[in-house]
């Protein structure tokens, strides 16, 4: 694992994110976001910018509000306060002020959400091809041959054999299900992908291949992504920038290598020192 990490890091570390065309602002701007569960804090006072092509990691221990934050940004739970501005190319738009049809359209075209458990993100009752094709059909594609072609193409891109196209996801291994979920989300060519523990529950060799795949896809498609994980190796490989959360608040943020190699906050130091060295 460590060897592979070193190889990947030295070989093709992404350049620091800058707005490619200079003129464009951040893709996503989050400000003062809060979600409370009654008197308890889910997350509070969270703010950051996400630039086009950038991958932001969110780390922290269980219960620190990572997933709540991700779901609040993605609109899966309604935030209590704060603003989320998204720039689809025509200037920033306040997502929370969008009408429900507009928000749902955004969710299934420009955005994508990769769930920790692939069963939450897949339709287990229909074939892999139908899973990948669903977003295309939701956008109005009505040509069976072309939908199937696109599904086949995407299965190849996530390294699933084309012969499995008509198999149901329930016949897939955990790693394949997760890759299928990624294909199903990326087929609509989203600009922003939310990932909640994308490697959770997978063994390390499968994790490593999945991370390789996600890295390649993110770079190839120029995606922006927000990745929530408790696994620091995952963010080390994927994320350009890092936010560390504790008790619903962001305690430290910065470039990934900077945060991990030179943690400033006591909690981050604890987190980094807790990694098992094999």
């Amino acid at each position: 694992m460590t060897m592979m990490m070193d190889r990947l890091r030295s070989a093709d570390r992404r350049p620091a994110p800058v707005a490619a065309d200079g003129a464009r602002g951040p893709l996503l701007t989050v400000d003062g976001l809060a979600k409370h569960y009654g008197a308890r804090i889910g997350c509070t006072g969270v703010g950051f910018d996400l630039w086009p092509g950038e991958v932001l990691g969110i780390v922290g221990e269980s219960g620190s509000g990572k997933t709540t934050l991700l779901k609040a940004i993605a609109g899966l739970v309604a935030p209590d306060a704060g603003s989320i501005r998204y720039d689809a190319g025509a200037g920033p738009v306040e997502v929370r002020a969008l009408s429900e049809p507009e928000r749902r359209r955004l969710m299934r075209t420009d955005w994508a959400f990769v769930h920790q458990n692939p069963r939450d993100g897949l339709r287990m009752g229909v074939s892999a091809g139908a899973n990948v094709g669903e977003r295309l059909m939701a956008r109005g594609q009505r040509h069976y041959g072309r939908i199937r072609g696109a599904a086949l193409d995407w299965l190849a891109r996530v390294e699933i054999a084309g012969a499995r196209l008509d198999d149901r996801p329930s016949a897939f291994s955990g790693g394949m299900q997760q890759r299928l979920q990624i294909a199903r989300n990326l087929v609509s060519e989203p600009r922003l992908v939310f990932m909640d523990e994308p490697t959770g529950g997978l063994d390390v060799s499968v994790q490593a291949r999945l991370l390789d795949l996600i890295r390649a896809l993110v770079r190839e498609l120029g995606l922006s992504a927000i990745v929530v994980t408790h696994d620091l190796a995952v963010v080390r490989l994927l994320a350009d920038r890092l936010m560390v959360m504790k008790d619903g608040r962001v305690v430290e943020a910065g470039l990934t290598d900077q945060v991990l190699d030179d943690p400033a906050h006591a909690y981050t130091q604890l987190l980094v020192s807790s990694i098992l060295q094999v």
Binding site: R104, V126, G129, A130, E134, M137, G140, R142, R148
Partner: peptide
């Protein structure tokens, strides 16, 4: 109900797609 209200009928074609593939 929400899908009817918002005319989100992609799912109906998922069923027909599945028919053809099987």
């Amino acid at each position: 109900r929400k899908m009817h209200a918002l005319e989100e009928y992609g799912l109906m074609h998922v069923k027909l797609y599945e028919d053809i593939s099987v």
